[in-house]
Amino acid sequence: MKLQDIASFIKSANAGASYLTFDIGFPSAETFHRVSGSGVITQELIATLYPIKPSDVQIYAYEPSLVIKITIPRPVASGGLAERDFDGVQQFAPLLDIEGAWER
């Protein structure tokens, strides 16, 4: 099952100019725990989707608003000459098709 089919939203944004952060929201506490407890979303997995080291990936399970947050560093601060997306809002596409055995 694809992550975009079980999550209620998947978005990306800058967290300051030197970090990119992804928020994956879930429609219920049950789906949030099913995915965050499944061990599928790991530093190693994220490092296969974005060209960064696994040790640079931060993953947080934020229960109060049922969001899995993933934060990665940007090697160059945003807003520079080679900027492609200075809010970082269109960088989440590789996360949509993450596969997991999350069917009930």
């Binding site: 800058n14 970090y19 952060t21 931060q58 947080y60 934020y62 969001v67």
Partner: peptide, 8 residues
């Protein structure tokens, strides 16, 4: 959570 690297 919003636009912070670490929600906690």
């Amino acid at each position: 959570l919003h636009e912070n690297p670490n929600p906690f």
